[in-house]
């Protein structure tokens, strides 16, 4: 490999104090020497980033997984709420039908108007709750917006990961050992998230374990 700095240094020492006294070749060698030193320093500086860049590059796939999980979890949670809302809506539909039938029967029996008014108040309350249920349903569209934001973040992170990998390849060997030393806050947080994922359990499993310990 050609070493521009070495080449520059191998030139005879120039003692002329005035710039204009130097020959064009000498000036060229000096400038090339400067340039070589600058490149060398830059390469060294960039190499120092190799370890943290390697660390970040290793953490990114984990971060991507957690983001994707976040999307899945909000989706599952939203469907769970929707299931309950739909069940209440179905019950309300039946309830409305029953109130209607009951009101007709009471009208035929010519009951006291106060009783009919009470039936109407019940019907109004059911309708008002139906409106609220619909509001809950539409409010759950937040999940779609969250998912879209997560998708955009995933795309950005994938791009960053790709560029970081390019930097690692160009400016230094991939230092897995060095990366392990870089236990910064981000890696600690990712570890905690990973641990949560591995140790989390559903209620059925928790109940099964509790049962073995005498909980009923």
């Amino acid at each position: 490999m050609i070493q521009p700095r070495a080449a520059a240094q191998s030139q005879p020492a120039m003692h002329e104090p005035e710039q204009e006294d130097k020959t064009p070749d000498t000036k060229l060698y000096e400038e090339l020497g400067e340039l070589a030193r600058f490149i060398d320093t830059t390469m060294k500086t960039l190499s120092e980033f190799s370890a943290p860049v390697s660390t970040s590059t290793e953490q990114l796939p984990q971060a991507l997984t957690h983001l994707t999980n976040l999307k899945t979890m909000t989706e599952q949670g939203t469907h769970r709420v929707m299931l309950e809302v739909e069940a209440i809506q179905d019950n309300h539909l039946k309830l409305s039908g029953m109130i209607k039938d009951l009101t007709l029967t009471l009208q035929k029996q010519q009951v006291a108007p106060a009783l009919l008014q009470q039936m109407q108040a019940v019907a109004n309350a059911v309708n008002a709750d139906d409106k609220r249920l619909l509001d809950i349903m539409t409010a759950l569209s937040f999940q779609d917006l969250v998912a879209q934001s997560v998708n955009k973040l995933v795309t950005i992170l994938q791009e960053v990961e790709h560029k970081l990998l390019q930097l690692v390849v160009v400016f230094g060997p991939y230092q897995k050992q060095a990366a392990k030393k870089e236990q910064d806050k981000a890696s600690e947080m990712l570890k905690q998230l990973e641990a949560t994922k591995n140790t989390s359990m559903n209620q059925d499993l928790a109940d099964e374990i509790l049962k073995q310990f005498g909980f009923n």
Binding site: H79, M82, Q89, D130, M137, L140, Q143, D144
Partner: peptide
């Protein structure tokens, strides 16, 4: 038409109502 199952469910629910 929506790629998100939650949004399809919301829109269908509203239309049903």
């Amino acid at each position: 038409v929506d790629d998100m199952s939650t949004m399809r469910r919301i829109v269908k629910n509203i239309l049903k109502q």
